[in-house]
Amino acid sequence: DEDSERELEKLRKNNASKEEIKEVLKRLGFSEDEAKKLAEKAG
């Protein structure tokens, strides 16, 4: 959803580590696997 998109955008701009991105995604309700895949894509 839009909030998670914004959250990811912010992380990308701040050069967050894949680990940080994954944690945020998991907080947003993604499964471990989904979060890992998305973090890879974002990283």
Rank of each mutant, 00 (worst) to 15 (best):
D1A: 11
D1S: 13
D1P: 11
E2D: 11
E2H: 10
D3M: 12
D3I: 13
D3P: 07
S4L: 15
E5K: 12
E5S: 11
E5M: 14
R6T: 09
R6D: 10
R6Q: 05
R6W: 09
R6F: 09
R6S: 11
E7Q: 09
E7P: 01
E7F: 12
E7L: 15
L8A: 04
L8K: 01
L8M: 05
L8E: 03
L8N: 01
E9S: 07
E9P: 00
E9R: 07
E9N: 06
K10T: 12
K10C: 13
K10D: 09
K10S: 10
L11A: 04
L11M: 04
L11Q: 01
L11E: 02
L11V: 03
L11P: 03
R12I: 15
R12M: 13
R12S: 07
R12H: 10
K13F: 10
K13V: 07
N14S: 09
N14M: 09
N14D: 07
N14P: 05
N15H: 12
N15V: 03
N15D: 06
N15P: 01
A16G: 05
A16C: 15
A16M: 11
S17W: 04
S17V: 02
S17L: 08
K18M: 14
K18H: 08
E19W: 07
E19Q: 10
E20M: 11
E20W: 10
E20Y: 08
E20N: 03
I21H: 00
I21P: 00
I21R: 00
K22H: 11
K22C: 15
K22E: 15
K22I: 15
E23Q: 06
E23Y: 00
V24K: 03
V24E: 06
V24C: 14
V24G: 03
L25V: 00
L25M: 04
K26G: 04
K26V: 14
K26Y: 02
K26L: 15
K26P: 00
R27A: 13
R27G: 13
R27T: 10
R27W: 09
L28E: 04
L28Q: 04
L28F: 06
L28P: 03
L28M: 09
G29F: 00
G29V: 00
G29R: 00
G29K: 01
G29T: 01
F30P: 00
F30N: 01
F30T: 01
E32A: 05
E32R: 02
D33K: 08
D33A: 11
D33M: 08
D33Q: 09
E34H: 05
E34D: 09
A35Q: 01
A35Y: 04
A35L: 04
K36L: 14
K36Q: 14
K36G: 12
K36S: 14
K36D: 15
K36A: 14
K36C: 13
K36I: 13
K37H: 11
K37P: 02
K37W: 08
K37L: 12
K37V: 11
K37N: 08
L38S: 02
L38K: 04
L38Y: 10
L38F: 09
L38W: 12
A39I: 12
A39N: 02
A39L: 12
A39F: 06
A39S: 09
A39R: 00
A39E: 03
E40P: 01
E40L: 04
E40K: 02
K41Y: 12
K41R: 10
K41N: 11
A42Y: 15
A42G: 11
A42E: 11
A42D: 11
A42R: 07
A42K: 08
A42V: 14
A42P: 08
G43D: 12
G43L: 13
G43S: 13
